[in-house]
Design a protein around this nucleic acid. Structure first.
Lengths: 151, 151
DNA sequence: CACGAATGGGTGTCATGTCAACAAAAAATC
DNA sequence: GATTTTTTGTTGACATGACACCCATTCGTG
């Protein structure tokens, strides 16, 4: 067990900024979604992959994989969303264990209502402050970090 | 209401990476703290400012301001931590409304146990994949975004 | 085919976070 | 100095998330 190498001043600053930015930015965007679409951030996260899928339908397993949720969390969330009429669950034909999740018309309407404001807020608070070059640099760095997370 | 300008391919990619990286990275670090110190991420967040404060004591208001928590959340969390003997609440001399929060010896021991592994994990999963120059670039970009969040 | 392991999904329970309402003290206003 | 307004902290109710466990189905292996 080697002696700990603590973060130096620059590193600590970056780390605090990283955490704080993440926290505040997500909070702002969540509020935004909440106000404009009557949706929670969780609702939105679920509806996004569904709206991109054919027939607005995905297998629960796939859905969970896309948004990195465990099955329990997804199941609870789907139960709540089903109760509010945003999605329905149907049987899966090719695998009797599975469950298909389909977005209802109300679900599609809700995300169509929320999405423009969400994108606008994302631009206003994030992309508007980045040059094209910085987008590329940032992408390269974050992709690299993400790719090494497994280790 | 102008027509929505959706994210292009590069932007969408960066945005997904940002969200996913945060989610996974924070999850990993939380697990780490959890295992090594028997602490939750919330416990850790509370203990960090306390361990940096004189006498391990801060006014609740200050503590909440540092970690950007609202009063209710902090109060609940402190209640739980007090029950587990990590902190104690004391009266505030100069303001009878206030509450002082003091880290107990057990609290200090817990964070001393968790901190080295936490820093190591932060390095392993984050800083080890960044050059010095990239740290500076990233800091500049994120600071700028953070500074503009109020708008 | 039979059997144990793995997978997909659900449920209950408890920890955590949010929100509205409250009470007490301090600050501001008149 | 009395009265409103803010600030500080707590509480209770409720939404959400994490975790352990359950059941049915499918897969892998003999």
């Amino acid at each position: 067990m080697a002696k700990t190498r603590w973060l130096d001043e620059r590193e600590a600053h970056l780390w605090r900024t990283w955490l704080r930015l993440n926290q505040e930015l997500l909070g702002i965007l969540e509020d935004q979604i909440n106000r404009e679409g009557g949706l929670s951030g969780a609702d939105y996260a679920v509806l996004v992959p569904l709206s991109a899928a054919p027939d607005g339908m995905l297998r629960a397993r796939e859905l969970g994989r896309e948004i990195l949720w465990d099955r329990s969390r997804l199941s609870h969330q789907l139960g709540r969303m089903e109760k509010r009429g945003l999605v329905v669950r149907e049987e899966c034909v090719e695998d009797a264990r599975g469950a298909m999740v389909r977005m209802t018309d109300a679900g599609r309407a809700a995300i169509k209502r929320a999405a423009p404001g969400h994108v606008a807020a994302t631009r206003r608070h994030f992309f508007d402050h980045l040059s094209d070059k910085e987008v590329d640099q940032l992408t390269a760095v974050l992709d690299r970090i993400l790719a090494n997370l497994g280790s």
